[in-house]
Nucleic acid binder design. Structure first.
Lengths: 209, 209
DNA sequence: TGACGTGCGGAACGTGTGTTCAGTACCTTA
DNA sequence: TAAGGTACTGAACACACGTTCCGCACGTCA
């Protein structure tokens, strides 16, 4: 759960590892020793190899012997990713400010892929219960200013962040709860400037134990 | 929304592409031409190269010239991934057989990451409705033979696949619905061989339109 | 009938690539 | 004081690797 202890990396070794990750992200496959050396300002492949041996020995990198580009950075804590948890939705304060980061939740990469534009909120209330979003659930929100009709969005309505379904209806927008005990919220197109769509709900997570 | 048209792949070309993806998933880096040929039963690197050229020409693969292992499969529709949809759960037939693939659903990679051991099922019935799993929902199941107590699993019970919460209770196992109108299913430890856990539910998706 | 795509085998070429060895310099720990 | 880790240069080696050209067989399409 908490990942085994690994020896600390030197600054230079961290640079090497960071560049391997960046190269893979950019190209889709790992770099060669000479490509690493070229970027890091190391002219000898042996200099690069020394770093790779150190990374391997300290447990940050897996290599396959004598195979080209066989560099696989090792992720800690299995496949968990930290996502900023910004606060309870429907709270009055501006929730997107960095200062309001309450915590980070670790989520299986399964749910997030590489998307960095995702944050988490904890749902307060039962206004979306018919969509299976319960009180206390975490919702994962992909930041984007637009949504398609019918999508569940997080929107900024009347100085409050709230989660509702989004239905544009000509000169007004209907924000529809999924609970018969709640009434829809209507916002006129004029006031739409103040009613920003913060993002769309892309995942729901419920603690199971 | 629907991605540009791409020429259809031949069966053989699809095999090549599938193996490239599988190799990357398994190793963390792409294969060489000879590794591809070895697995596909093609002794000549030229035979493999012909396939790669075809995949590149048809828009399924990006390559960098003359660089080793520079094979990057191209995902369509931005971040969408195809997951095999194996059938309706609670149906009587063995659902994991390849022949029962009904279709593939495209899911945002957000939900899946790189995991290839995930398949989708469509839920039939309302036995898990209190967990927000509704009739017609797609559930994403990570294949694994074990589960932690309380997790929602897909299990093979009495010649049927079903989704329930998993509660081992000493000499028996309770499979618990999330609906007061349904009774739990008890399976003795003796019969556990026939009651295989197929996987755990890692995601729920509901069509929003 | 001829052109084109598919699906290979076989061989040769040139260079990309990881490995290894020898050596230097600096620093920290025992 | 010796040993080991860090951080490289430089050179040489062997083979892994992508490329290219030749060939064959089979199919479809106009």
């Amino acid at each position: 759960m908490f990942g085994e202890q690994r020896p600390k990396l030197t600054k230079r070794q961290q640079e090497v590892l960071d560049y391997i990750r960046a190269y893979i992200t950019e190209h889709g496959y790992p770099p060669t020793l000479r490509e690493l050396g070229s970027h890091l300002g190391i002219s000898s492949t042996n200099g690069v190899n020394d770093h790779l041996k150190a990374l391997e020995r300290k447990g940050y990198l897996a290599r396959d012997e004598a195979k080209s580009r066989a560099l696989v950075p090792i992720d800690t804590e299995d496949n968990m990713v930290s996502v900023p948890l910004l606060g309870r939705i429907a709270a009055g304060a501006p929730i997107l400010a960095v200062e309001h980061v309450e915590d980070t939740v670790k989520v299986d990469r399964f749910f997030l892929g590489n998307s960095s534009e995702v944050f988490a909120l904890r749902v307060q209330g039962e206004s979306m219960i018919d969509d299976g979003i319960h009180d206390g659930d975490f919702i994962f929100v992909k930041k984007q200013p637009r949504a398609r009709p019918g999508e569940i969005v997080v929107a900024w309505i009347e100085e409050e962040a709230t989660v509702k379904r989004y239905y544009p209806e000509g000169d007004r927008i209907r924000f529809q709860p999924a609970n018969d005990n709640f009434e829809p919220i209507y916002v006129s197109a004029d006031e739409f400037r103040e009613t920003r769509i913060i993002g769309v709900v892309v995942g729901i997570y419920r603690l199971m134990h």
